[in-house]
Each structure stands twice: as structure tokens, then as C-alpha cells.
Design a protein around this nucleic acid. Structure first.
Lengths: 231, 231
DNA sequence: CGATTCATTGACTAGAATCAAATACCGTGG
DNA sequence: CCACGGTATTTGATTCTAGTCAATGAATCG
């Protein structure tokens, strides 16, 4: 379940270990650092990666699978802050402990690098520092966009936004999206209940905007139709 | 209305100008950089500081007054992302353009520093890079906390959270909070309408949690009472 | 002062939540 | 392969919180 990764085939230049003090990473940036230094770990579905309030000792990268960050109120109400898919970094916190907890949505492989290692490398590598800042600022931008959704959009607009964000930016052909997360996760991400999410999916299907061959698979028939609902 | 500030009394070491290429700032960090390089500018109530989609050319610091960042939907629905008070930095975006617009809530003085200047200094000063990252990560944390509020809290909990966040962390004596922003601003920050904000203030007054000597002044009678509502 | 903007209050509505039940799905073991 | 139990999802009926529409009251600024 746990192993130290070797240098992958995408990193051609030999890199010395942390112990020797200097590691070249600028060639591949933050992703390169993770490739070199990460301990890839397997997490099972719904397994906690870190908890709210725990010391923020590592930075993380999703290699395979999907991750959610969550925050809970005392009575169990839950908000999902973001979903992270393969290639994304998360846990980028500058403060000493985590504001959210993070859990694997499905069986996933996560690379973890000690914050102290990253901080040490960032001190030597300006472009790496810029990349770390950019990654954090990108998370901030996504959070700000999500605040608009949570504060001002209707249920239908929220679900349409969500589907469009999963679809990426391809041409307007029929796009098939595989949902790794449950209806409860979607609801807690969009600030709705599972019933409202489910009803909204059904309504979008009735409007011919989407098709639902199964509950975890969405065919987007009318991208423009969804964009009209997006707000 | 516009002038280049001299080095202030808090920065004892003489610093050379940007033109000469090197500026020492680590003694006072990011705030020191702003003191040295900033053009302080006056903005009137409701004046735009930058617009959504504009190039993110500067970083900003509130010297006096208060600032809101906003995002609008096509039909005019508005979400306020954050309020910034004296001493706060904003506009910390790593991407090329602003995701939100920023406006002065009341007549305010804002220091602006070119992003390129900051980026140049950050490349030489590791601790400054760390501080810039920390400031961005702090904004991210606040945004994440706010997503929980917008997605999962009731109107009463939202208003209670808002008041507690303004009050800071003092002892539980009677705290008087001066609101620089309108009811509309509060509503757009909390994802509510002005009517609901107003009614909630009244209800809190009836519960003896607060007093409202005027619409812009809140006396917090029972901090614990508000905390119980906070969620 | 008078005009205008901002805030509060009231009556009613609508959209999403809640409560409840039925149906579909999935892995397991007979 | 199919029956079973458990979970996830969908659908239905009803409730309730916050929104909308409307009017009044208070504060602010020439």
C-alpha cells in the first residue's frame, strides 16, 4: 500500500536525493518535484487523507482517482470545498494546520511530499516558488467562482455549472462524463440536498440537455443549453 | 491624490530605488515593500479599483477605509467574495487577469504596487515569496470558510458568523462594531437579500444578542449567544 | 427643509428542504 | 445464474425558509 517511487521515465535527468541537499526540479516544475520526492500511497474509497485541524505536514498530488475536501458543522452539515482529479495538487496551505479535511472519493493513488522539502526547494528555485503561488492562487480563483455559485445561483444553474466544469472545454459534440462521486457528494458540493440534485438531473434529462444512461454517467446533449442555464 | 511614498520610519535601513535594481525589504516583509514602492491612491465610495476580467497589473493594500471584491452574473445578481480592511492585501492573483472586481466601500486610501516589481523582489527574497504565498493561502482559507457559510448555514447563522468575524477575538465585554458597508453589501456577501438581513438583525435584537443604536452600528451584547448561532 | 437613498416591516409566494416511500443497483453467496 | 440484503437513487407529498412585491419609516445630503 505504500512505496517510494523511483524517478519516472518522464524525468530524464538524474536527480540526487534530498539527503544530498540539492535537487534539480525546474525542468518539470512542481509536478517534477512530486515525481522525484513523492511517496505514492493508495487510499481506499472514503478513506481520510488528512483531517480538519491536523498539522499540514504534506502537500499532495492526485495520481489516480479523485479527492474531495470537506468541512463539517457540529450537527453534521457538510460542505465540499473542491474536487481534485488526476494531476491536481491539493493541501496547499500556508498555515500550520488544515482548514478542510481531504478524503478519497474512489480508490486512489496520492503522491505526498513533505512541506518542509517543498519549502526548502522553493527557497532555491524561483520558478518553483512562482508555480506554488500560482497553484494556490488558482485554487483561490476556483473557490471564488464557487462562492458565486453557492451564494447566488439556482439549483438548476448549479447543476449545469457543475456538469460544464466536468466536461472541460471540448467541441460541442456529445460529451460523456463519468462521475466518480455520489449524489451526496454532488449535493454537498453544490449546497443542495441529494433529492434536489436528483430532481434537477431528471429535469435536465426531460429538457433534452443531458442523458443519464446510468446514475454515474452523464451524456451532455446540449452544451449550449447547459450554458444558457449556467447564469 | 497620488504620490510616491518615502521610506517610512519603521524601515531604518536605507533602500535603493527599484531603478537601481535591488531593494531590501525583508525587515518589514510585504508590508515594507508596499511602504517603499506603493503609489497611495484615494478612491471614493463605490469607486472601482479594478474590474473583473481586467489585466491583473498591480497588487493592493488597504491603508484606510474598506474594499469589497465582487462578481456578477449576467442578470445583475452579485456575490461579494470578501471585505478587506486597513492592513489587508488584495488582488493577489497569479493569473493574468482579475477574477473579481474590487471597489471601495467608503472613501479609502489604497497602496498599489506593480506585480512585476513584487515578482522581481520575490525572486531575490525567499521570505517575501513565503509571505506572498501565505497571504494568498490565507485568502483561500477565508474563501473556504465562506463556502461553508454560503452552502450550509441558515440566515441567522450567516449573520451571526458575519458579526463575530467583524468583532475579532476580544474578551466578552460589550463590543461595538462599526459597519462600513450597506445592507445590500452584507446581503451580497452572505448570499441573502437585504430584507432577510434586516429581519435577521431585528430578530437578533429581539433575542438580546445585539443592539442596533443605528443601522451602521452594532453592539454585541451576547458573544456566546452569537457563537451558539454560528453553527 | 425637501429630495433621495437606505433600511425596516408586512403580506404573500416560490424554491428548495424535509419526510416518506418506491425503485434501481451492486456485491455476495447459495 | 439467481435470490438476497444493503445501499444509492429517484420520485412523491408536504413544509418551511428565504425571496418577492409593496409600503412605510429613517437617515443623509444638498
Amino acid at each position: 500500500m505504500l512505496g517510494i517511487s523511483a524517478i519516472t521515465e518522464t524525468e530524464s535527468r538524474p536527480a540526487r536525493s534530498i539527503a544530498s541537499g540539492v535537487v534539480r526540479a525546474s525542468a518539470t516544475g512542481l509536478a517534477g518535484v512530486f515525481e522525484m520526492l513523492a511517496m505514492p500511497m493508495a487510499f481506499e474509497r472514503n478513506e481520510e487523507i488528512y483531517g480538519e485541524g491536523e498539522a499540514a505536514e504534506y502537500l499532495y498530488e492526485v495520481v489516480r482517482g479523485a479527492v474531495r475536501t470537506t468541512k463539517m458543522l457540529a450537527d453534521g452539515r457538510r460542505q465540499i470545498g473542491a474536487f481534485y482529479r488526476a494531476g491536481s495538487f491539493f493541501g496547499l496551505e500556508a498555515s500550520d494546520d488544515h482548514a478542510f479535511s481531504a478524503e478519497a472519493i474512489c480508490n486512489s493513488t496520492i503522491r505526498m511530499v513533505k512541506r518542509s522539502s517543498i519549502v526548502a526547494m522553493v527557497a532555491r528555485d524561483t520558478s518553483l516558488a512562482a508555480e506554488l503561488w500560482a497553484a494556490t492562487a488558482s485554487d483561490l480563483r476556483i473557490a471564488q467562482e464557487h462562492m458565486l455559485l453557492l451564494g447566488r445561483k439556482t439549483a438548476e444553474e448549479r447543476v449545469a455549472s457543475f456538469l460544464l466544469s466536468l466536461a472541460g472545454e471540448p467541441a460541442n459534440g456529445q460529451i460523456v462524463v463519468e462521475l466518480p462521486m455520489s449524489r451526496q457528494d454532488i449535493a454537498d458540493y453544490l449546497g443542495l440536498t441529494i433529492e434536489t440534485v436528483s430532481r434537477t438531473f431528471t429535469r435536465l434529462e426531460d429538457n433534452a440537455a443531458i442523458e443519464l444512461p446510468s446514475s454515474r454517467r452523464v451524456v451532455m446533449r446540449s452544451r449550449s443549453g447547459l450554458q444558457r442555464l449556467n447564469g
